[in-house]
């Protein structure tokens, strides 16, 4: 298996020395993200997120299946991540690296376990039929901070997604095509986002947001905080690395909240723009069969 290419000694030293002088290679401030951009596909549920040179594509899809026997009233929701050799030659197909396992685990905890998607609304016939929603995450290019970009892509794809409308009459389930009835959005409860801090220095006293690949390779530890814009924390993961002082972690969490508010506002704006773009004739309000929650 190809090992990840190590940065040279010169690069290692220089990145750290520059950080000592409060400088980053791309002249960003410590708590600034690279330009974040999200574009939606022509199909519902396709979101492409780029964060500098890191690019992630997420696609949501839904199909009707049988619910799990122990949860007859819940739908099925799963997130599948894939780090292909396209992102970096050190990744191999069908052999998950530690990065990939951590990524899928963090997405699972952030989006699935925090109850962002209302799985009960996916139930069609109790114990017999339900929607199975699946999000596929593809990392297209890896230049650091894949976690934040992937989480944003998953949330964007799910909020953009529309599942086919259904009706039940006399025990017969009908799934309508988009031509018959306008597809309906998923039952969405809150939008969690990940914010990853990287720590540098002997005791992790320097904290950076949105580390690039070069910075990720020389960091001494990292901490991923997932929260929504109301400040409700879904999870905090500080997996190994140098211990970081509690005061620094508190500051990081406070800044993370402001970042998440920005993400939330940006995604809302982009989704509204997309709805406007699709609503060419201005008749989408009449076509929809959805009621206000």
């Amino acid at each position: 298996m190809p090992r990840e290419a190590e940065p040279s000694l010169n690069e290692r030293q220089f990145v750290l020395q520059a950080l000592q002088e409060n400088l980053r290679l791309d002249s960003r401030e410590a708590d600034r993200y690279r330009p974040l951009e999200v574009t939606f596909g022509d199909e519902y549920g396709v979101a492409k997120v780029s964060l500098g040179k890191t690019r992630v594509l997420a696609k949501a899809s839904a199909e009707v299946t049988v619910p799990y026997a122990d949860r007859p009233l819940d739908g099925v929701f799963q997130i599948a991540t894939e780090l292909s050799p396209m992102a970096s030659p050190s990744f191999e197909v069908n052999r998950p690296t530690e990065t990939e396992v951590l990524l899928s685990r963090l997405l699972e905890k952030t989006v699935r376990r925090s109850g962002a998607l209302d799985t009960e609304s996916l139930c069609l016939v109790a114990g017999q039929k339900c929607w199975s929603v699946r999000v596929d995450v593809h990392v297209l290019s890896h230049d650091g901070n894949v976690i934040d970009a992937s989480c944003f892509a998953v949330v964007a794809a799910l909020r953009h997604f529309r599942k086919p409308d259904t009706s039940i009459e006399g025990g017969i389930l009908t799934v309508y095509t988009p031509a018959e009835r306008e597809p309906v959005p998923l039952g969405w409860l809150h939008s969690p986002f990940c914010v990853t801090w990287s720590y540098f220095g002997e005791e992790g006293e320097m904290a950076l947001l949105d580390a690039t690949r070069a910075e990720e390779q020389v960091r001494v530890g990292s901490c991923t905080i997932s929260l929504n814009r109301h400040g409700e924390i879904c999870q905090i993961a500080k997996l190994g690395g140098t211990p970081v002082e509690a005061v620094i972690l508190l500051q990081c969490t406070a800044i993370a909240l402001t970042k998440v508010k920005e993400f939330s506002a940006y995604l809302d704006k982009k989704l509204a723009e997309d709805i406007k773009r699709r609503d060419a004739g201005g008749r989408s309000a009449e076509l929809t069969a959805e009621n206000d929650r």
């Binding site: 220089f14 020395q17 520059a18 002088e21 400088l23 980053r24 290679l25 791309d26 002249s27």
Partner: peptide
């Protein structure tokens, strides 16, 4: 100077 190197790199 570190700043110079960063400027040239950018």
């Amino acid at each position: 100077s570190t700043k110079t190197v960063i400027a040239v790199g950018r």
